[in-house]
């Protein structure tokens, strides 16, 4: 892959130039929450590596949107959300999460909404430094080799820029004068030191590689009951998880006297008690322990018959978010040590 060098002083102007490729999106502060949203001013972008509360999936698998309109004549799909976009500031874990979501949503038959949003969005990745709860070194998602158009590694006075696609190449060509092909020995040294510094910054880790077997062996463990007892079924873990893709559909009538309305799609959570409830009523997963088990099966063992890999990308959001400390770390520790966490 082609790697170029850019002086840091050009960053703002370069990012500004990307507007010709689409509407800019990236992490910005909004009502005291860091979130991926439309960027009016590139100075608002937060590119220092801080995590957004809600992961980048929201731009590709929107929290709530209208999939189609219906009336007496039938159903008409709604693709009004498609626009050319440039997403700036995706971290390696964000990019890995999109590659995992691709496996679900782009597998034939592709989800047309995700596909449309994905195909119309350029990904400009940015390096980050570990947060308090980052686990991406454990999950092998701390670096990224594909899934971006450009990827910027911040080495203070310079950026090393990985060119990951033909579109990324075109973006560079627009501001060719900012980029230097001549990566020196000193630059390489700087990069290596940065990698080492970053590797040493991880405060937490877990035994991700062995978790599929441990999950399988622990299926009937009473440790699940300990966690089930604490779980509030609030669904926060699923909302903040970058690889949670579940959704539910609801038909909503317009306020008219006619048969007119929309089929709305909203994020769902397998932690909710009615997640597996069918008419009858019969609930296939009425117990909290069964719902927790399902979530951790997907995150730490395998998800999807076709692409059976664990879905956790180590962002640490469940560690940050769960109000009762149920997360990949406490689960992995409890099942590895066969002991429930000390109070």
């Amino acid at each position: 892959m082609r790697i170029l060098k850019m002086d840091s002083k050009y960053l703002k102007e370069f990012l500004e130039s990307l507007r010709m490729f689409g509407k800019l999106y990236g992490p910005i502060w909004k009502r005291d929450v860091l979130t991926h949203d439309h960027v009016e001013n590139v100075d608002d972008l937060v590119l220092d590596g801080e995590h957004t509360l809600i992961p980048v999936k929201k731009l590709f698998h929107p929290k709530r949107f209208n999939t189609m309109r219906f009336n007496e004549e039938g159903f008409t799909p709604n693709y009004s959300m498609f626009e050319k976009r440039v997403l700036i500031g995706a971290h390696p874990c964000d990019i890995h999460s999109l590659l995992r979501l691709d496996e679900v949503f782009l597998t034939d038959p592709a989800d047309p909404y995700y596909k449309g949003l994905r195909e119309n969005t350029a990904i400009i990745g940015f390096s980050c430094l570990p947060t308090e709860n980052s686990l991406c070194r454990s999950t092998g998602t701390d670096i990224v080799e594909s899934g971006f158009d450009l990827f910027f590694v911040d080495l203070e006075d310079i950026y090393l820029v990985w060119v990951g696609s033909s579109l990324g190449h075109d973006m560079i060509l627009e501001k060719e004068e900012f980029f230097d092909e001549n990566v020196t020995h000193a630059d390489i040294q700087k990069y290596i030191q940065w990698r080492e510094m970053r590797n040493d910054m991880f405060k937490k880790s877990f035994n991700f590689r062995d978790m599929p077997d441990i999950m399988e062996l622990s299926y009937n463990s009473e440790i699940w009951d300990y966690f089930a007892e604490k779980c509030l079924s609030c669904g926060s873990c699923t909302m903040v998880c970058p690889t949670c893709n579940c959704y539910t559909l609801t038909d909503v009538f317009d306020v008219t006297n006619k048969t007119e309305g929309r089929r709305e799609r909203v994020w769902d959570s397998c932690m909710f008690v009615d997640y597996s409830l069918v008419a009858g009523p019969h609930n296939f997963r009425g117990k909290r322990a069964d719902r927790l088990k399902l979530w951790y099966t997907h995150k730490l063992k395998a998800f999807g018959g076709e692409y059976g890999r664990p879905a956790c990308i180590g962002c640490g959001r469940c560690v940050d978010t769960c109000p009762v400390d149920i997360n990949v770390l406490t689960i992995a520790e409890a099942f590895t040590s066969c002991e429930v966490p000390a109070k």
Binding site: N245, Y247, T248
Partner: peptide, 9 residues
């Protein structure tokens, strides 16, 4: 895609 009918993986 929607996840609801999941059984194990």
């Amino acid at each position: 895609k929607c996840g609801h009918c999941v059984l194990d993986h």
